[in-house]
């Protein structure tokens, strides 16, 4: 062994070859250490980041039950679900017809009225304007309903039709239909 070492030493190749070898190993060790360290730091940071997500008590308020029997045709109520207003409207025949007569090509966010309701007269949607979250007017009688006889957002002037679809203004999409089911003919469960 000693003669090999001596030869290499003499040729000067030992140092360069070995150090070259050592450099790649060190590079590998350095990069893998940094990589593992970064992953570790990321994993350690996750609990802190995730602690800001909705907590269990917030998530526990998952669904609400609403009695819709007192809502007459043409009337609407607003309930609160997860801190957001939900519009429940008992639409008149005229409103349904108006919503269904619209051509898809006229809509900014094309969606059939049939796909937005479970029963034609009951329209259920989250009452947050899809622009920046203001509550559109039009629930109470006497409030402005906008150019399409649905809802009108006073903050930046978005107009929604009788199906809650965006027709005019800065909002990018239709009012959101939350998950809901009819527990009975007069009760819906939102969430």
């Amino acid at each position: 062994m000693s003669d090999t070492a001596a030869t290499v030493e003499n040729s000067g190749g030992h140092g360069s070859h070995d150090s070259h070898d050592g450099e790649t190993r060190r590079d590998f060790l350095l990069i893998s250490t940094v990589a593992v360290g970064a992953v570790g730091a990321g994993l350690a940071a996750w609990p802190f980041v995730d602690s800001m997500n909705p907590s269990l008590d917030v998530l526990a308020l998952k669904s609400i039950e609403v009695d819709i029997s007192p809502i007459e045709e043409g009337q609407a109520i607003t309930v609160f679900w997860r801190g957001n207003p939900v519009f429940i409207r008992n639409r008149s025949k005229k409103e349904i017809d108006a919503a269904r007569a619209e051509k898809m090509s006229d809509l900014k966010d094309p969606e059939k009225d049939e796909d937005r309701v479970q029963k034609p007269n009951w329209l259920v949607m989250v009452g947050n304007c899809t622009h920046l979250g203001c509550i559109p007017l039009g629930q109470r009688t006497g409030e402005p309903k906008g150019n399409f006889n649905g809802w009108f957002c006073p903050c930046h002037g978005s107009h929604y039709d009788t199906s809650g679809r965006i027709r005019l203004g800065p909002a990018p999409s239709n009012l959101v239909v939350p998950p809901y089911t009819f527990a009975s003919d007069t009760t819906i469960v939102i969430g």
């Binding site: 800001m52 997500n53 909705p54 917030v58 997860r82 957001n84």
Partner: peptide, 17 residues
Amino acid sequence: VQWLWGGFSVDNPTLNR
């Protein structure tokens, strides 16, 4: 946005943070 709010709307967790 839900992460910023800590919920589904601006609410108590939002005010805390």
